[in-house]
Amino acid sequence: MSEEQPVLVDVTDGVMTITLNRGKAKNAVNKAMAEGVAAAMDELDSNDDIRVAIITGADNTFCAGMDLKAFVTGEMPMLPGRGFAGFVEAPPKKPLIAAVEGFALAGGLEVMIACDLVVVADNAKFGIPEVKRGLAAAAGGLVRLPKQIPPRVAMEMALTGDFIDATKAADVGLVNRIVPAGSALEGAKELAATIVANGPLAVRLSKQVIAESGDWTAAEMWDKQNEIVMPVFTSEDAIEGATAFAEKRAPNWKGK
């Protein structure tokens, strides 16, 4: 794959596939890659024909994190308001699936945990080894990871910099599915197809509630949820879904 295109984007059957395309650098993120990912995320959320996205890496590896060679020259792979890799501080509104082969390390792990769902190869490795380079996992490893796995496990990963394997990742709830090596993208596409078959408005608002509800109090959670999801129940898609069920046919979603 060409190094001239740090990010490759394909859209097929309502699914966008974003490929981190710096295989010779283990798909390490530089500024150009961050800009390419940010542009893809903008297209994902603005194009009604795209329902789900997958982010993956070229050459049988996911992402080795920040491009350290670029870092020592003063280049930072962050964008204002978006953070590392062009999206970790501002994930898309639509579902995003990580398809992981090989290594998801440092910023690569932080890209992965910014996604909604994760499909990994059975030989994949995960870690936030920033401390081994005198750095800190400041793109989500220290603040997002402890909310996704047991805090003591996240603490050990952050302080030791050691890796975990796919089995351990599944045991602590870090990933959704483990598939044979070489088939992570295929597995992610199968998961994406299942999501695409569902009502797009219902999917998007369901993601929003889960993403935002972590700090809601018991007193406010029902009102906050209902404020977001009530439009689903008065939507054209809700009527279509019920009608299609009664008529024993596939729904024709409009996303409204």
Score class of each variant (00 low, 15 high):
A219Y: 10
A218M: 14
R249M: 02
G255F: 05
T217P: 00
I128N: 08
A193P: 05
A202T: 06
V229D: 01
L191C: 03
F62N: 04
G255R: 04
N60V: 13
I195M: 15
A250M: 08
D122E: 14
S46F: 12
A170F: 11
T61D: 01
G161S: 08
P200Y: 06
M1S: 14
R144S: 10
D42R: 14
A181V: 14
A25F: 04
G83R: 00
G214A: 12
S46W: 10
F87Y: 14
A32T: 06
T17P: 00
M76V: 15
P200C: 04
M78I: 14
R177D: 06
T194Q: 12
Q208P: 09
V9G: 06
V179M: 01
A64H: 03
I178N: 00
G86A: 03
R152H: 10
E236V: 05
L68K: 01
A25R: 00
P150L: 05
P180T: 14
A184N: 01
E240H: 09
K256N: 15
F62C: 08
L68C: 03
R152Y: 13
P150N: 03
I97N: 07
P95Y: 13
A58C: 02
P251Y: 08
P151H: 04
W216L: 09
N123P: 11
K94N: 00
P77Y: 10
P77F: 11
M230Y: 07
T217C: 03
W222D: 06
L105A: 07
L191V: 06
P150Q: 03
Q225N: 11
